[in-house]
Design a protein around this nucleic acid. Structure first.
Lengths: 194, 194
DNA sequence: CATCGACTTCAGACATCTCTGAAACATGGT
DNA sequence: ACCATGTTTCAGAGATGTCTGAAGTCGATG
């Protein structure tokens, strides 16, 4: 790369600083990817997001392909998925054909988005199921005089779980709404449930 | 099963109530298993836990094998893992050789245990990595006059992420500590960070 | 309208995770 | 000591998840 000997010392110091930065970033990216996996997020997506977040610099498809050593297809799909989640943004640069990507910079905002999305995709359906289960048990109770102990237990457990999930949802909501009164209200709800 | 015609009506009503209960439980178990998967918990473990939770009744290995249609090996390993997590309990019954398992009944307690464990296993190592990354960047800054923009950005992002994770940890801790003053303290911290 | 650069899609290869079933192990009773 | 009953372990089978690479799409440009 640098064939010039005269600026060797300055150049090498600069290069080493850049290398060092890159190594630090890679370390973060690696660990973030590992964590993602244990949370049900695939490694590439997590790493991709980590890369865009930690550099804070817009990058195009080829940049990330080279940096993470992944195929074009994988990069394309994963970047799209991250855009769908709403935690990275895609944009054009005037006069360029390539598209660039950048991460949201505000961690709280990212967390809000992810929490809201996971609530919608994963908590809400479970809550729905719990309510259906309760309805089914109620119907049955009307239809028969059977009041078995086991039914009572299941009913109770469904109730507890429902209450827990609803409180949890309120807590998530407080993060999103992000106001003092909202948070205090949540604390009150929480205290009553404990 | 019931070969007796005379008690057919009462018997069939009883059976149907039991069947209905079982169907409701199965529905909950199924959904819980699905949710677990998207959170990086394997389906069998989630279902196993759901079964023990929702029935609220101690069950032995053969019970769960039959109910969930899983092999003995799988049941054994998964039950052990759940015990390791601390959200189910294994115990003997006097005069019986089989071991029985039951779930914790308190959802809040289960959540506390899970949150604490995941924090320890997944958040803490990431926080550790972030601190190491920061240290590496600091060293470098001393060694060279290079104060590139990119380094500054990365440093800033590491800081934001660290702060976010530390606040999140405090919130988890408030759930565990479970006191009014603890929760209020958390709200204050939270408000300052927002 | 042919070409080019960039992006997307997806079938099949590959990697990882999960489960089974049988053998080994443990333990209590006779 | 031996059997009966129950549990654990783990190699290999099977299922699921992920990635690649090449063919296809799209739109800008000469």
């Amino acid at each position: 790369m640098s064939a010039d000997g005269t600026v060797a010392s300055r150049s090498s110091r600069t290069m080493s600083a850049q290398d060092q930065l890159r190594r630090v970033q890679d370390e973060f990216i690696r660990k973030w990817g590992e964590m993602g996996q244990t949370w049900g997020i695939n490694r590439t997506m997590a790493e991709l997001h980590a890369l865009l977040y930690i550099t804070g610099t817009p990058q195009c498809t080829d940049d990330v392909m080279e940096r993470l050593n992944i195929s074009r297809g994988n990069a394309s799909m994963s970047l799209r998925a991250l855009c769908d989640w709403g935690i990275i943004r895609r944009f054009h640069r005037r006069g360029e054909r390539r598209e660039y990507f950048e991460s949201l910079g505000d961690v709280w905002e990212m967390f809000s988005i992810i929490a809201a999305e996971r609530k919608r995709r994963e908590m809400d359906p479970v809550l729905e199921t719990i309510k259906q289960c309760q309805a089914m048990l109620d119907e049955q109770a009307i239809g028969s005089a059977a009041r078995s102990e086991t039914v009572a237990i299941t009913r109770k457990r469904l109730e507890s779980m429902q209450e827990f999930m609803e409180v949890t949802n309120k807590i998530f909501h407080a993060f999103v709404s992000n106001t003092k009164s909202g948070l205090n209200k949540v604390v009150k709800v929480l205290l009553k449930s404990l």
